[in-house]
Design a protein around this nucleic acid. Structure first.
Ligand SMILES: NC(=O)c1ccc[n+]([C@@H]2O[C@H](COP(=O)([O-])OP(=O)(O)OC[C@H]3O[C@@H](n4cnc5c(N)ncnc54)[C@H](O)[C@@H]3O)[C@@H](O)[C@H]2O)c1
Ligand SMILES: NC(=O)c1ccc[n+]([C@@H]2O[C@H](COP(=O)([O-])OP(=O)(O)OC[C@H]3O[C@@H](n4cnc5c(N)ncnc54)[C@H](O)[C@@H]3O)[C@@H](O)[C@H]2O)c1
Lengths: 252, 252
DNA sequence: ATGTCTTTGTGAACGCGTGCACAAAGATGG
DNA sequence: CCATCTTTGTGCACGCGTTCACAAAGACAT
């Protein structure tokens, strides 16, 4: 049983701040688009606009990688694409397994964005015996029994979990035991992993709830200057006013 | 054409920090699980462990909502579920539209996690005429032509974009013009929206690239203590060493 | 009623991330 | 070769988020 910590200790990796690492893929995407249009160089201002960030932030981010720009000119697009790709480890080929080939897992398997950047779907794994052998996105689904063998034979170090929440921790434990050290989790659960294993989660429900919070705030802040606002306010299920304070009734 | 800024100005909403808001759904999930097991009260230590965060952080988070705990005892589970739900706006019913009913959009439509928390799929919208009327997850797909009408009639303020990247900005503009003020974007593009509109993005490709960065770091840090490591190292496409410095060749 | 024991709520310190503003670097033109 | 102009790279200040550590609050037993 994995008893590791869950929150990552913000390991200042190689002098490159975590926040910068998270933005590098954004820059890379913008640069790739420029590259396809054969744009030779780009200024920090232009690239920042394309990536949706502050230009000073972008320059500082790049300064962690080295001095790759030319003052008075900007950055060489091709060269920067290469440097960021190398920094992110995308010059390597990363075999990935997807576990749980349901609605979401199948969509992921069909997603073209994988192969475009050094990621290769090495195998699809599901616990349902009736799915074994059936091809999804051209790849035959394999049974969970062979999980360890699949990980080992393909040299997989990145796993994607798209099983129901109840199975996620168990699947995670098996992946980690088999040698996987990076996990992308789509199941709405907190995964416990040993030190040295990275977990990132994608949680649709959380994102929606955050949006709902801000949405409620927007609706509540302007008391009611106009009845026919940008969108009709959703009906309130509770009798609670939108800006009301504590109901002042403590159950216990 | 929407010419707004993209990065949110970190609007310190109602005194509640953004980082806290992002964790509230996590607490709520853990509390809901406790509630279903009829656990009456929970300490900050226990709940923090369940949510995978530091207990001091959790207490400080709750302190922004008010003093809902009892010293020496902990927090009343049911009461806290209600308070957080109310704070997040989940006591209301939020109609949501999904635009782009392909692989991903269909998976999202089939996802049960929507209805579980106040979110209701009000409509599915796609540009493909051959899909119009066809039911997905029990809901008939409607054509993009009727987008504005659908938003208006259902009082939708939250939209989910699952179209190809090329169509995302255009769809976004139409949603915003029709009154949507919160957008969850699955397409790999930076969306420009006017002030007052919130955008959150879910980007599989970025998450994988961040994992790859750390994976590369792990593999490179221990020089090579063992050839048969936890997982065989993926083959290097370039001739570049994993820890190599700049190639010292500047194209331009 | 009083003491003990548990757990909350928060003051304070610290570190990270962000953005301003500017000096230095280098291209470009005369 | 020199002047000018553009754009990078970064020192600095500030604010947010995290964590420690502890006093205060309240439950519970006697
Ligand atoms: N569908 C979505 O849009 C969506 C969105 C966000 C999150 N999620 C989450 O993603 C996960 C999958 O969602 P889904 O809609 O694809 O569900 P699903 O039920 O369609 O698919 C789940 C799949 O996992 C397989 N499975 C179950 N236990 C397994 C195990 N122990 N090992 C291997 N495979 C196993 C099942 O056979 C099934 O094929 C869920 O946790 C869900 O909450 C889904
Ligand atoms: N499939 C995945 O797992 C996955 C993962 C991450 C990101 N994404 C992104 O999500 C988006 C959708 O992915 P997908 O695999 O479902 O693609 P898809 O091609 O299967 O589906 C796209 C759907 O959008 C519709 N569409 C196109 N233009 C439209 C428009 N202007 N208005 C309304 N609908 C329109 C198409 O008719 C199609 O049904 C893409 O941007 C993709 O990059 C997908």
């Amino acid at each position: 049983m994995a008893t590791g910590r869950t929150h990552r200790p913000a390991t200042r990796s190689r002098g490159i701040p975590e926040a910068t690492v998270a933005r590098l893929p954004l820059y890379l995407r913008a640069l790739t688009a420029l590259s396809e249009r054969s744009v030779p160089t780009v200024s920090s201002e232009e690239l920042a606009a394309a990536a949706g960030v502050n230009s000073a932030k972008l320059r500082k981010d790049f300064s962690y990688l080295g001095s790759y720009g030319t003052r008075g000119v900007g950055y060489d697009v091709e060269y920067l694409v290469y440097q960021i790709s190398r920094e992110l480890g995308l010059t390597q080929d990363w075999p990935v397994v997807i576990v749980g080939i349901g609605n979401l897992g199948a969509a992921l398997a069909n997603y073209g964005g994988f192969a475009s950047r050094g990621f290769r779907v090495a195998a699809l794994i599901d616990a349902d015996p009736s799915m074994a052998g059936k091809p999804v996105a051209g790849i035959p689904v394999q049974h969970t029994d062979d999980l360890e063998k699949i990980i080992d034979e393909n040299g997989v170090s990145i796993g994607v979990i798209a099983t129901p929440a109840g199975a996620a921790q168990q699947v995670c434990d098996r992946l980690v035991a088999a040698g996987v050290t990076s996990i992308l989790n789509f199941a709405p659960t907190v995964l416990s992993v040993p030190d040295g294993v990275d977990v990132r989660k994608v949680d649709l429900s959380i994102e929606l709830q955050i949006l709902a919070f801000h949405e409620q705030r927007k609706a509540g802040e302007e008391a009611s200057p106009d009845g026919s606002g940008p969108a009709a306010a959703p009906k309130d299920t509770s009798g609670q006013g939108p800006d009301g304070d504590v109901p002042a009734v403590m159950p216990a």
